[in-house]
């Protein structure tokens, strides 16, 4: 089992979610985060361009069994890239970490079938 953590652009959330659902990956957690990366974004406030020093992003966390790891990664990459197939600085990152145990609270089931 793996925990896939993806940091993506806020504006791509709907695309990524819809693509994941299409690929039959329906159990995800989403949160708002902000941080530093290579990207600088500009926003308008009262007509003035400003560059915020922490950039808002979306974090998606998905726990998957081994056989779903590749499809999940491919789906996120495809749907989170912007500006054509080459992507653009700021499209985000995917982290994969080993997952020791999963427990469904309702039934107490453990392991792969609880995912």
């Amino acid at each position: 089992m793996k925990l896939i953590t993806a940091i993506i652009r806020e504006a791509q959330l709907d695309q990524v979610r819809e693509a994941l659902i299409e690929a039959d990956i329906k159990r995800i957690s989403v949160s708002r985060v902000s941080g530093h990366g290579q990207q600088r974004i500009e926003e308008m406030y009262r007509g003035q361009v400003i560059v915020p020093d922490l950039i808002p992003k979306i974090k998606i966390e998905i726990a998957v069994n081994e056989e779903f790891v590749d499809i999940t990664i491919d789906t996120i990459i495809k749907s989170a890239r912007t500006d054509g197939p080459d992507g653009k600085v700021g499209d985000g990152k995917i982290f994969i970490t080993p997952l020791e145990e999963v427990i469904r609270i309702r039934t107490g089931e453990r392991g792969g079938k609880a995912i």
């Binding site: 708002r32 902000s34 915020p52 922490l54 808002p56």
Partner: peptide, 9 residues
């Protein structure tokens, strides 16, 4: 963004 100021900045 409407609630942009809620982000730590």
């Amino acid at each position: 963004r409407g609630y942009g100021m809620l982000n730590p900045n």
